[in-house]
């Protein structure tokens, strides 16, 4: 997809990307001649198609890791504990790159029920939330994240 400034008859350049926000991305293009900007707003399906191609709008800042599409694309419910998605099924945004990788997780085990409940959280925020829960559990001296721990963390952290 390319954008053209009709007035200048000039190809527009990528200026900025924002999101994802509930599956939608904002991609802003600007005309290098007149400076006029336009924003492309994707719906969730369009975002997912780009993501499925294994490319990143805005360019690939770093080389792709081995099995990155599998590692980051599988839902948390599918990922094996020791598999390449062991980071917790973290989802990478196709546009702005790594989102959840910024949130380094501990080795604390999760019960299946607790992990399933994380599926309800948008992928872009899941790593951050899981990290927060693990920190709460560690502070409470707990050895495992269960659904009860999730409920307590939720009320304790005002979630």
């Amino acid at each position: 997809m390319k954008f053209l400034c009709v007035e200048c008859d000039e190809a527009m350049s990528l200026a900025e990307t924002r999101g994802p926000d509930r599956g939608s991305m904002t991609v802003i293009f600007g005309c290098p001649v007149c400076g006029r900007q336009t924003a492309m707003l994707t719906n969730a399906s369009e975002t997912q198609v780009v993501r499925s191609l294994g490319v990143k709008i805005g360019g690939q800042a770093v080389s792709a890791e081995p099995m990155e599409g599998i590692r980051t694309g599988l839902a948390a419910s599918s990922v094996g504990v020791s598999g390449p998605g062991a980071e917790g099924g973290a989802s990478k945004c196709p546009f702005t790159g790594m989102v959840n990788e910024a949130f380094v997780r501990s080795d604390m085990p999760w019960t299946e029920g607790a992990r399933q409940r994380m599926e309800n959280i948008p992928a872009s925020a899941r790593g951050m939330v899981m990290q927060s829960v693990e920190r709460y559990a560690e502070a409470e001296g707990l050895a495992e994240v269960t659904e009860t721990v999730l409920d307590r963390a939720r009320s304790g952290m005002g979630m």
Binding site: G23, S52, M67, A75, S78, G80, V81, G83, P84, S91
Partner: peptide
């Protein structure tokens, strides 16, 4: 080799 166990389906992370 990357799935949780023998009965785990391949489900891709997606809004829906």
């Amino acid at each position: 080799l990357f799935l949780r166990d023998e009965t785990t389906p391949v489900t891709w992370d997606a809004p829906s």
